[in-house]
Amino acid sequence: MLRVSDLSISIGSPDNYIDIVSSVSFEIGRGEILGLVGESGCGKSMTSLAVMGLLAKGGPWVRTGRAELSGFDVIHAEPYERVEAGHGGIAMIFQEPMSSLNPVMTIGEQIEEAINVHQRVTGSRQNLTARDYLEMVRIADAAMQINAYPHQLSGGMRQRVMIAIALACQPQVLIADEPTTALDVTVQAQILSLLRELCDTLGLSILFITHDLGVVAQLVDRVAVMYAGRVVETAAVDRVFDAAAHPYTAALMSCLPDPAHRVRRLVTIPGQAAKPGQITKGCAFAPRCAYAVDICREDPLPYAMLADNHRALCLFPRGVVR
């Protein structure tokens, strides 16, 4: 469905640039949820903005790579071009729904607007109304809520409205950038449940960006772990948790406190996270890696291909079993 290949995003001039995202590749199948995971500053949000075509002029720019939606390059196309070409679209939802909603329009009007824009561009009539979309995102008494203004809704309801607006654009892929980070756990569980349902019933594909490994474990089908602007490991979710091959992935897993398995001291990763572009030679994780040897700091790394579509950017991938 969505295939991102060799995506590099740089800052600086074309002659003198620093890659902040470097050679990122991943793909998402129909109805699949891919979790793009990493700590702050690893380049995960930048990647999603590039795929969405939302990188502002004068800021970071796409140096290499493609993002193909059903074979159509979406990065280098204007949004209307990709819709006109019959490739539907990519829609996006963000962490803070309030700043994406217009405070002086009712939520019904805002969904309507999305429906109309989509209709104008594609020329095809939808037979779904704003109310249908509100029901699709499981807003109780949609008939009444349709006339509400954003400030009258709770945080969870607002995020549902954002999802409804995104759906009104009839996307094939939904990019969700930390959509539940600002929400309470009980609300988060419901939003995650809704996203799962939309994947299963509509065949929607989701690129889910998060730092929360708990959410990753419960929701996503495949995982891409990012560190310092690179994807260091991709695999099916159970492989990542049960047999992490990259030392960074493994270390990240063991940092996580789990009250069901309390330990006296948590495992930590020594040092600080490398900024993208800070380490240009060898493996960016080598200075913090417990298993690093000299050649890790020297050569450009190849991806190690492991079983079941499992790749790790490491010379010595491990079958670390938790």
């Binding site: 499981r138 309470d184 756990v185 609300v187 449940s193 708990g214 474990a217 419960q218 789990d258």
Partner: peptide
């Protein structure tokens, strides 16, 4: 509810569609 809603870092416990537990 709080314990159940907490995302657990275990891929064997998957989120199900249709969770409705209300909001604070």
């Amino acid at each position: 509810t709080l314990m159940a809603a907490r995302p657990k870092p275990d891929p064997r416990i998957r989120i199900k569609a249709g969770i409705e537990i209300g909001e604070p």
